[in-house]
């Protein structure tokens, strides 16, 4: 066999998955990518709350209570565009992905 998948003696029993989904990047599903205009962003964090892929990250200040900004984790963002649609100040634009 060409692939190097582990054999039955090497994997945990009971069918327990042994890798985190974080090791599976879904970013290449994307057709449009969200681009955040930090100047327009009011740090309401709704994009973080509504993101189905946990791909909108928040930068916190040292107290951990104040959001300094939000950014997209393009490793996982599937480009659904929900963030752009719900953004109350239209700070997120969906831009055609160029590969």
């Amino acid at each position: 066999m060409s692939d190097k998948k582990p054999g039955w003696k090497e994997i945990p029993i009971a069918g327990v998955p042994f890798l985190s989904s974080l090791e599976y990047k879904t970013g290449d599903w994307r057709v449009f990518k969200p681009v955040i205009d930090d100047n327009k962003c009011i740090r309401c964090l709704l994009c973080n709350i509504y993101c189905p892929d946990m791909a909108i990250k928040v930068g916190w200040d040292e107290t951990g209570n104040k959001a300094l900004g939000v950014f997209v984790d393009y490793d996982y963002c599937k480009g659904c565009g929900i963030c752009a649609d719900i953004c109350p100040v239209k700070a997120i634009e969906m831009v055609k992905e160029e590969r």
């Binding site: 989904s21 879904t26 599903w29 189905p52 946990m54 490793d75 996982y76 599937k78 480009g79 659904c80």
Partner: peptide, 13 residues
């Protein structure tokens, strides 16, 4: 966590 394979825009997560 991210890296799940639900469709883009699925509300379940």
């Amino acid at each position: 966590l991210s890296g799940h394979r639900l469709c883009a825009g699925c509300a379940a997560p």
